Amino acid sequence: MEPVFLGAVTILGLLEQAYFSLQVIYARRKYSVSPPSITGPPEFNRVYRAQANCSEYFPLFITALWTSGVFFNEGLSSMCGVLYLYGRLQYFWGYASSPQGRLDPLYFCAKVLWTLIGCSTIGVFQSFFKIYLHMDLLQITATALGFY
């Protein structure tokens, strides 16, 4: 199986990161904040921090997305990825408007990211047990719960 959906979400994420970076460039021009300066009027500072915060979390997101998609479920992971990217866009726009505008999207993104991390963990453990210990944890769990 080719991880097409994971690739598509990754490309969307890269485009979103590029959009955030461009917004900082536009804000630099609008508020006359020349590089390498990273401070200016509050309006610039919010755009700059929103972009920086999104960039800081991007490696965590991509790692969790791919690990969850490869080891757990590509469809569910890709859907979570799209939700995360939507949440990050809302976060960026909210933060650019006001510091309080970032909070609800931030909490949403954290929940989605933790879901991806949880699915990654379950998927890796399941694969490890299946490959190296010849035990199917899902089947064992389903049997223990009376589903088999």
Rank of each mutant, 00 (worst) to 15 (best):
G69N: 11
F128V: 07
I140P: 00
T67H: 03
S97Y: 01
L138R: 08
G146S: 06
Y107S: 04
F125A: 02
A50H: 11
P59L: 04
I117L: 13
Y148K: 14
S97P: 01
N45G: 03
G87M: 05
L138W: 15
I62F: 07
T121L: 13
T141N: 05
P36L: 06
V112S: 07
V82Y: 00
L89I: 10
S120T: 08
K111N: 12
P36M: 03
Y148V: 10
Y48V: 02
D104K: 15
V112F: 00
W66D: 01
F129Q: 04
Y95T: 02
Y48E: 08
G75T: 15
K30P: 03
L83A: 14
G87R: 13
G123P: 11
Q126Y: 06
V70T: 13
P105W: 00
A110E: 03
N53F: 06
V124C: 03
P42Q: 06
L138A: 03
Q90N: 12
Y31I: 04
A144H: 10
S37R: 09
V112W: 02
T115C: 08
F108S: 14
R49W: 06
S120V: 14
N45E: 15
Q90A: 11
Y148H: 06
L113D: 13
C119D: 00
R49F: 05
G40D: 01
P36G: 07
K130E: 04
R46K: 10
M79I: 14
E43F: 03
A64N: 04
Y95S: 05
Y95H: 15
L60K: 09
S127L: 07
Y132F: 15
P99A: 03
P35G: 01
I131E: 00
A52Y: 14
G146W: 04
P105T: 10
G40M: 09
L89V: 11
W114M: 08
L76H: 03
D136F: 08
I131M: 10
R28M: 07
D104G: 04
I122D: 10
S120I: 06
V33M: 08
T115H: 01
Y107L: 10
P42F: 00
W66L: 04
Y48G: 00
T67W: 11
R102S: 04
A110W: 14
Q139I: 13
G118P: 13
V47K: 09
S68A: 15
A142W: 09
S78H: 07
D136G: 05
W66S: 00
L60E: 05
S127K: 15
R88T: 08
S77V: 02
D104W: 15
P36H: 10
R29N: 12
Y107A: 01
A110Q: 14
C80E: 01
A110G: 04
K130N: 07
T121K: 00
R88L: 12
I117F: 12
Y86S: 13
S32F: 08
L116N: 05
A144N: 13
S78I: 06
S127T: 14
L138E: 15
N53C: 05
Y84C: 02
D136V: 04
I131W: 09
K30T: 08
N53P: 13
P42H: 02
A52D: 05
